[in-house]
């Protein structure tokens, strides 16, 4: 394992430990935010229509 990868793994472990040590209420706020982000992503990306239906004007 090279030095850079080792530093990345240590940083990830440190961040996980920091998150684990947060109060339960703060962790639940993060769950709220993660859920809101997931819903937003599903609305804006996955379910976006492939065509431009409804986005233009009808000529007739």
């Amino acid at each position: 394992m090279n030095e850079q990868l080792r530093r990345i793994l240590i940083a990830k472990r440190t961040e996980r430990a920091r998150l684990t040590a947060l109060p339960f209420a703060r962790k639940l706020e993060i769950l709220d935010q993660l859920r809101a982000r997931s819903l937003e992503l599903s609305r804006t990306t996955l379910r976006r229509p492939a065509s431009h239906r409804g986005g233009g004007t009808k000529s007739a």
Partner: peptide
């Protein structure tokens, strides 16, 4: 998963 969050880092759940 929400119960697990009491002990672990938060991770997204449905």
């Amino acid at each position: 998963a929400v119960g697990a969050t009491f002990y672990l880092e938060p991770s997204a759940t449905l």
